[in-house]
Design a protein around this nucleic acid. Sequence first.
DNA 1: TAACTAGGTTGCGAGTTGCAACTGAAAACT
DNA 2: AGTTTTCAGTTGCAACTCGCAACCTAGTTA
Lengths: 188, 188
Amino acid sequence: MGELREPLRELIECGLPQALEVMGERWSFMILRASFNGLKHFEEFLSELGIARNILSNRLAKLVEHGILKREPCADDRRKIEYRLTEKGLDLLPAMLALRQWGQKYGSETVVEDPVLVDERDRLPIGPVSILAHDGRILGPQDLWLTRPANLGRRADGTIATPGESQGVSLGRGDVVDLAEAKAAAAR
Amino acid sequence: MGELREPLRELIECGLPQALEVMGERWSFMILRASFNGLKHFEEFLSELGIARNILSNRLAKLVEHGILKREPCADDRRKIEYRLTEKGLDLLPAMLALRQWGQKYGSETVVEDPVLVDERDRLPIGPVSILAHDGRILGPQDLWLTRPANLGRRADGTIATPGESQGVSLGRGDVVDLAEAKAAAAR
DNA sequence: TAACTAGGTTGCGAGTTGCAACTGAAAACT
DNA sequence: AGTTTTCAGTTGCAACTCGCAACCTAGTTA
């Protein structure tokens, strides 16, 4: 594995900071979850989340500004405003579920009585949010490798994969990382 | 679909708040990513992330306290301390990747030259972080349904699935949510 | 011994957060 | 019509957190 160390460019350009700009704020994920749960109105969020009015107002405005929620006046009651998830907001579902599954796996209290997310086809609980290979295999840290776009492998049809497609994700730093080693180290 | 509305119990018990307690802090995810990138020492994080010393100190301590990183004095130089990911920390990889993929998908600048996460088997870029059904099918928002544990389906062998296993995830609120409807609404 | 390095801690100003009270418009009651 | 209630905000103020710079301490190097 060649030494691969780039001139340490700013890490601002890797997707994560952009995501955190909105979702890193203290209440954003809780509001997002409430939206996934079907809440739409200001006062609903307010009483459900126990957040301060001004913060909620501010957060909702930011989420709307970033295109995660959209703000529509209600037809039947013109005081009311509906905050609904956009496509962009719905796309945060994997991230939210991954976080929640992690929190649940390591959290102290497990409340089994709460409703459960199921596959509507067979009503069985969903599995863990997973990192998939291009062919659908589930990948763990030990299966991942960080490399330069130039060193990408070739697909069966001989075409070179481009990082942009299929959500190829940059880790943003010019270092080859052996996640398997990291995993081994974690095991002590 | 029966009306399903619980007495609005506190939402603190759903995994997400527990996750956010640590990872909701402003720099936690950036530090985590740096860890995945192989950074181990205080001064490395400091210069790489551009974070303030005191905040970094505080965040690292919290991450250690929550068992995401572990703090080990370096063998060869007893001034140095290594911060390494634990198993619990490694388990945050799907959440971090999901966030990053989202940020990259909707972010303005796409830097193609950055290194890319690949499947080490064939060196092809990884796919999107996905929500899987128990049988491995990839699920979208439209395939998900929120239900009570009592109404779970049965597996092929006739056993009733338990929410605890296979990362069944509670949304924490006693409301049945039709995510397909939400998706349709998002489309405008 | 002096200088340097790694990892913190402390003090200070600026920015955020939470709480409570107030506003202003639309709906509901009387 | 006139009062009250509801909805979604805004404003003022206290408490907390952040970022910056300076300082501190133990271990290493010259």
